[in-house]
């Protein structure tokens, strides 16, 4: 894994339609990163709620991704479109308390991206980190890694 995101806690919400075998496919990265990475499968990305996103950050995630199907390819027609608007709303909300909006990001899968969620996660982690450790956890006891 790239060092760019080393030290960051990552929460990945993802649509299970992306990867039927998601449970197996994410193990390698779970093994490597331990509790620094958390996966939350959703039946559809449209099932994401603002509270999910906020609570993830509150619990100590530095970056929260929502990985969704390509636009226009949602099994429920509009799930990922709705998700996108919720993500934008959540970004604005956290900006109001002084966090970077970039801590929450929507990723629509593209044809170039790998098919399994573990590999997608690897790819996301290899990107340049847009943010550093969240002040939410650096200034307080992080509960993200606590169970």
């Amino acid at each position: 894994m790239d060092q760019k995101t080393a030290g960051l806690n990552i929460a990945i919400f993802f649509c299970r339609q992306l990867d039927a075998n998601q449970d197996k496919n994410r193990r390698a990265i779970e093994k490597e990163l331990g509790l620094r990475i958390r996966f939350f499968p959703l039946p559809c990305s449209g099932r994401i709620e603002l509270l999910h996103l906020l609570r993830a950050i509150e619990a100590g995630a530095d970056v929260v991704y929502l990985v969704a199907c390509p636009e226009g390819a949602c099994r429920y027609r509009e799930g990922n479109l709705r998700a996108k608007r919720r993500i934008m709303f959540a970004q604005k909300l956290i900006e109001e308390i002084g966090l970077e909006g970039a801590r929450i990001e929507m990723v629509n899968k593209t044809a170039e991206m790998p098919a399994d969620i573990g590999a997608i996660a690897m790819e996301l982690l290899a990107r340049d980190a847009k943010v550093s450790i969240s002040p939410v956890r650096s200034n307080a006891v992080a509960s993200f890694i606590e169970k």
């Binding site: 449209g46 709620e49 799930g79 709705r82």
Partner: peptide, 8 residues
């Protein structure tokens, strides 16, 4: 099963 509910 789970519920898929659109809030909007």
């Amino acid at each position: 099963s789970g519920i898929i509910a659109w809030e909007e």
